[in-house]
Structure formats: C-alpha cells, structure tokens
C-alpha cells in the first residue's frame, strides 16, 4: 500500500483525512484507485485531457514526478505520494 497525502482543498472528499492508503504500482494507478475510493478526487487532480492540473504538483517521496517518469513513475511499498497545490494567495 502507498501512503497518499491529500491537500486541504481535497479533504472533503476523503472524510477530512490528510493521508489515505491506496494500492497501486504507478502514480497513474494510485490516482485512478484514489478516484474509485473517493469519488470526485480524480477530476480535481486531472484536467479534461487527463493531465495533472496546472496548479498541482505530485511528488513521490521528495521528488516531483515531472523529473521522474511522470504518471508512469513506478511505486514500491513504503513510497509516499503527495498531491500538493502550488503556492497561491491574494490581496
């Protein structure tokens, strides 16, 4: 199982949990399975083309998946996936 960190804006879909355990061998499988377990979440992570939304970074452990092999990045037991919105703010 892979520990997945859920950002604050998506926690309403995980019953408020900041971390969930999900099965999967790649980042893509994790997001698919996360979406099955917590409906609505996949659509918030991917855009209409199935790409990670422009304000979201996905990390495996401490590395952004863009610098690994993207959504195909393989995972092993003990890895942690973090879904993290890039910094925002406002006046």
């Amino acid at each position: 199982m892979i520990k997945v960190r859920i950002p604050t804006p998506l926690r309403p879909m995980t019953e408020g949990k900041s971390e969930v355990e999900i099965a999967g061998n790649t980042v893509s499988e994790i997001i698919d399975n996360l979406g099955s377990a917590h409906p609505g979440i996949k659509e918030r992570v991917y855009d209409e083309k199935g790409e990670v939304r422009r304000f979201i970074n996905i990390y495996v452990n401490e590395e952004d998946i863009r610098f690994l092999t993207g959504k195909d990045t393989p995972l092993k037991d003990g890895d942690e996936v973090s879904i993290i919105p890039a910094i925002a703010g406002g006046a």
Partner: peptide, 13 residues
C-alpha cells in the same frame, strides 16, 4: 488576477 495569484506548478517545480 487583480486580487489573487496562483503559481504555475510546473514553473515552480
């Protein structure tokens, strides 16, 4: 964008 910002995640990475 006059009252808020959202950084581009790819550029940030």
């Amino acid at each position: 964008a006059d009252i808020a910002f959202q950084m581009d995640a790819r550029e940030m990475a």
